[in-house]
Amino acid sequence: MSNTQDIINATEDYVKALLTGEGSGHDWWHIYRVWHNAKAIAAHEQADLFVVELAALLHDVGDHKFHNGDETVGPRMAQQWLESLKVAPENIASICLIIKELSYKGAGTSSAMSSLEGCIVQDADRLDAIGAIGIARTFAYGGHKNREMYNPEIMPELHDTFEAYKASTAPTINHFYEKLLLLKDRMHTRTAKEIAQQRHQFMESFLAQFYAEWDALR
C-alpha cells in the first residue's frame, strides 16, 4: 500500500480482529485509547504522525506478558505485518524500535526511548495505565493472572531488573507502588504530564479509600 491512511486503516482492522474480546485489559479498546491519546499528544509535538499512529496501533500485538516473557515477539509480528503492506523500511525500523523499547521494566530500571515518536507512544500507553481506567485494567490483569487482590503480609518490591519485574506474582495492590504511582514522574511530554497529574491523584484517593475500608474490618 502506498497511501498512508489506507495503511493505518488496514492496521486498525488487523489489530481490532486480533485483540477484540481479550480479557486482561490489553484488548482492542486499550489500543484504541492509546492510539487516540498518542494522536492528541503528537498534535503538540513536531513528530512523524504516521510512525506514531502505527506504533500505537501495533504496540501490544505480541506483548511479552502473554508470550512467556519473550520481548522479540511484538517487534517481529509488527515487522511482518508492516512488510506485508510494503511500508518503507526506515519507518518499519522506527516503529519496531518503539515497540521494543516501550515496556515498563521495573522501578529501578530505565525505560528510555530513542525517538520523540517513541516518547509520545510511551506516554500514551502509560496514561492508559493510570487513573480510573488504569485501576480497572490493573485488577482485570490481576484476575487474569490469578493473583490475590491484596495481601497485607506481602510488601511491594521496587524491582532492580526487568527479569525480576517480569517474574513478579505479587498481589494487585502492590502493582500501584511497583509501577503505577511512579509513572507520573516518568512522562516525557508536557501534555502527558498535565493529564497524568489528575489521574495520579485519583489513584491516591482510591488507595486511601481502599485502606479505609480494609482497616474498618479490624
Score class of each variant (00 low, 15 high):
80 Q>H: 11
81 W>N: 09
81 W>P: 11
81 W>M: 10
81 W>L: 13
81 W>I: 12
82 L>Q: 11
83 E>R: 13
83 E>K: 15
84 S>Y: 13
85 L>C: 13
85 L>F: 10
85 L>G: 07
85 L>S: 09
86 K>R: 13
87 V>D: 06
90 E>V: 13
91 N>W: 06
92 I>F: 04
94 S>L: 14
96 C>G: 05
96 C>I: 11
97 L>A: 15
97 L>R: 15
98 I>H: 06
99 I>W: 12
100 K>A: 15
101 E>P: 01
101 E>T: 08
102 L>T: 07
102 L>R: 09
103 S>L: 11
104 Y>H: 04
104 Y>D: 04
104 Y>N: 02
106 G>Q: 04
107 A>Q: 10
107 A>V: 05
108 G>L: 10
108 G>P: 10
109 T>H: 08
109 T>N: 15
110 S>K: 15
113 M>E: 11
113 M>A: 08
113 M>D: 06
116 L>R: 09
118 G>K: 04
118 G>D: 05
119 C>S: 13
121 V>E: 08
121 V>P: 04
121 V>Y: 07
122 Q>M: 12
122 Q>D: 09
123 D>H: 12
123 D>A: 09
124 A>V: 07
124 A>W: 06
124 A>N: 06
125 D>G: 13
126 R>N: 14
129 A>G: 10
130 I>K: 02
130 I>E: 02
133 I>F: 03
134 G>A: 01
135 I>R: 12
136 A>N: 12
136 A>G: 13
137 R>T: 02
137 R>P: 01
138 T>M: 15
138 T>F: 04
139 F>I: 03
140 A>V: 00
140 A>R: 12
140 A>Y: 00
140 A>W: 01
141 Y>I: 03
142 G>D: 01
143 G>N: 14
143 G>L: 10
144 H>L: 09
145 K>W: 04
146 N>Q: 13
146 N>A: 14
147 R>V: 01
147 R>E: 08
148 E>K: 09
149 M>W: 06
149 M>N: 01
149 M>D: 04
150 Y>I: 01
150 Y>M: 04
151 N>H: 00
151 N>P: 02
155 M>Y: 07
157 E>M: 13
157 E>C: 13
160 D>M: 13
160 D>Y: 06
161 T>F: 06
162 F>R: 15
163 E>H: 05
163 E>L: 12
164 A>E: 14
165 Y>A: 09
166 K>D: 10
167 A>L: 05
167 A>E: 08
167 A>D: 09
168 S>G: 11
168 S>L: 05
171 P>W: 00
172 T>W: 01
173 I>N: 00
174 N>R: 03
175 H>D: 06
176 F>K: 02
178 E>G: 00
178 E>I: 01
179 K>E: 14
179 K>Y: 02
179 K>V: 05
179 K>F: 02
